[in-house]
Design a protein around this nucleic acid. Sequence first.
DNA 1: AATTGGGCTTCCAGTCACTGGAAGGTCAAG
DNA 2: CTTGACCTTCCAGTGACTGGAAGCCCAATT
Lengths: 138, 138
Amino acid sequence: MNIGEVAQRSGVPAKTIRYYESIGLIQPAERTAGGYRIYNGRDLKTLQFIQRSRNLGFSVKQVGELLALWQDRGRNSADVKAVARVHLSEIDKRMGELKEMRATLEDLFHRCHGDERPDCPILNDLAGEEREVDRAAE
Amino acid sequence: MNIGEVAQRSGVPAKTIRYYESIGLIQPAERTAGGYRIYNGRDLKTLQFIQRSRNLGFSVKQVGELLALWQDRGRNSADVKAVARVHLSEIDKRMGELKEMRATLEDLFHRCHGDERPDCPILNDLAGEEREVDRAAE
DNA sequence: AATTGGGCTTCCAGTCACTGGAAGGTCAAG
DNA sequence: CTTGACCTTCCAGTGACTGGAAGCCCAATT
């Protein structure tokens, strides 16, 4: 297959496949006499593996590690699990951050009238001003 | 104040302050005869506003909008609320994606032995293979 | 007055993972 | 032998910084 077909079948854009080749994530493809890249079923499987890994949020670097492990018959599943563990903790970290942002933002959002008046708790908070209720509590 | 002091007091690194100036997020700072940037209390407040906005996950572009609104005495709080709404929905989208990744990953993680054997459900899944239980159910 | 050292300046490059676009070559069908 | 889709390479841009090099500024010692 040409790059267009393997792109369509793997879900990885042709442009991205070339990019993956350029950074060494995948082996340089064979070429036709005219210079076209050609791919086989094995290449397709590799690209599908990459696509699924990326969809799970693994970084390209991590995908490289997973690919190497996948192609290593003598691997230890512990090594795969370790990559997954790192990624899981990154996801948890990111989710924690988002959750915190969301809570603050949601609170501000609901306290903002959202009308034609300029007064706005969102801006007040961003400007570092104390809340009315906080001041009343002092 | 010099850039180092305002950086320290606002929490925005000096390098980042110069960057914000270069992209037009903040006005070019005044300069001393020797070419040093100088900042006043107002500039500090602006940088603190920016820092707080960034901490809530607003993009630099959104921060620019919020800054403009903040400095506009005739603003409508509805406009501020609209920026917050967009950002909130972006956060929700991102959290949804992470949640889905996490669920899949956690499942795979717990099904992987994580020992010296090569057999690994994580790799099997990434390779697009059916699960044992799924195959048994067919 | 000269020196030291820390802080400041600009500019370029790198990060991550692509993505867009231009200029031009290849290929199969008609 | 032409058309048009598909392919090629290369360069530039995205977002939001961050690192580093080369060199100037300034206040405090000696």
